[in-house]
Amino acid sequence: MSFFPGKDPVAGDAFACDAIENLIIPRTSDIGGFAVRRALPSRQRRLVGPFIFFDRMGPALLRADEALDVKPHPHIGLSTVTYLFDGEIKHRDSLGTELVIRPGDINLMTAGRGIVHSERTPENLRGHPHSVSGLQTWLALPDNREEIDPTFDHTGKEMMPLIDADGIKGRVVIGAFEGLASPVSTFTDTLYVDLWLDAGIRFPFAATHEERAVYILSGELVVAGDRFAADQLLVFRPGDAITLEAGLQGCHLMLFGGAALNSRRYIWWNFVSSSKERIEKAKEEWRTGRFDIVPGDEEEFVPLPTA
């Protein structure tokens, strides 16, 4: 999904905590009553580990006459990661996949040399008020995997290990964390953890991964005495031991990061590559109809942007 047409986020407010390398305030766009906040890429930061794109979708309540309809569009050089907190989205792609993702599940679609997909409100929810809330992120593929064949993997929430301690609950969505390992497979070291902290609870965020960040989904987070509100992205300095502390209302966080890529990545629209020439080739392929079609969703498509 990449339907947010807004500009890159603007610089965030100043902060005092030395442990934080970047504070990013996402730029918000309203799309027919559906709020989307883009935190990556930004002017301050292009990637955190392999994460090159980070969108917060909603939370939104769609009226009976509204629906999410992201028409077929292409990707290269990345894996899309769709993770919902509320609602349902029907995924179709050019591999013939047709599947509804529900809260707690994860869709990981690896584009490689090229894939096309659509994301829409399922038929059973159309004509009724319904809510949508979640995250869509992109993982840039390493140099030797950028042109692999496309694949799609769905992992149900029951397969992911749960974090359950006093005042702390969560799910390890991707990677290894606190002795728990997700079954979701990626091509580089990747961390993606859904974490809830009750009011006043402190939780150590070890420097196990090369690059680390946290997106505050709700509540207030305290780091080294500084307080941060919902819908802020904090990127931590490498190697520093961090303690996350929930504010008076508790907080809901997404921890993410992993190993940095070995070479630069370029991003244009839905295309990610280490080569500008490869992106130009993908643009021409989409413009001239040389990508595969999405079975069951052949009538519409998102045209190539003109700018």
Rank of each mutant, 00 (worst) to 15 (best):
F3G: 05
G6V: 10
D18F: 06
E21W: 01
S29I: 11
S29W: 06
D30P: 01
I31E: 14
G32T: 13
P50V: 01
F53A: 03
F53S: 05
F54Y: 14
L62F: 14
P74C: 11
L78Q: 14
T82D: 05
L84M: 03
F85I: 08
H91I: 13
H91W: 10
G96L: 10
V100T: 15
I101R: 01
I101H: 02
I101L: 12
R102N: 11
P103Q: 13
G104R: 09
G104Y: 08
D105H: 04
A111E: 00
G112I: 07
R113F: 09
R113P: 01
G114D: 02
G114W: 02
I115L: 10
V116F: 08
V116T: 15
S118Y: 08
R120C: 11
E123P: 00
G127A: 08
N144E: 14
N144Y: 06
R145V: 01
E146K: 14
P150Q: 05
P150Y: 11
F152E: 00
K157I: 00
M159H: 08
M159F: 03
P161A: 07
G170C: 07
G175M: 02
G175Q: 03
P183V: 03
S185C: 05
V193W: 01
L197F: 10
F203W: 05
F203C: 01
A207L: 04
A213F: 06
V214M: 01
L217P: 00
R227I: 04
R227K: 15
F228A: 02
D231G: 03
D240C: 12
D240R: 15
I242H: 03
T243V: 05
E245K: 00
E245P: 02
L253Y: 03
F256S: 06
R264P: 00
Y266D: 11
W268Y: 13
S275I: 01
R287H: 09
D292E: 14
V294M: 03
D297S: 15
E300Q: 10
P305Y: 12
T306P: 00
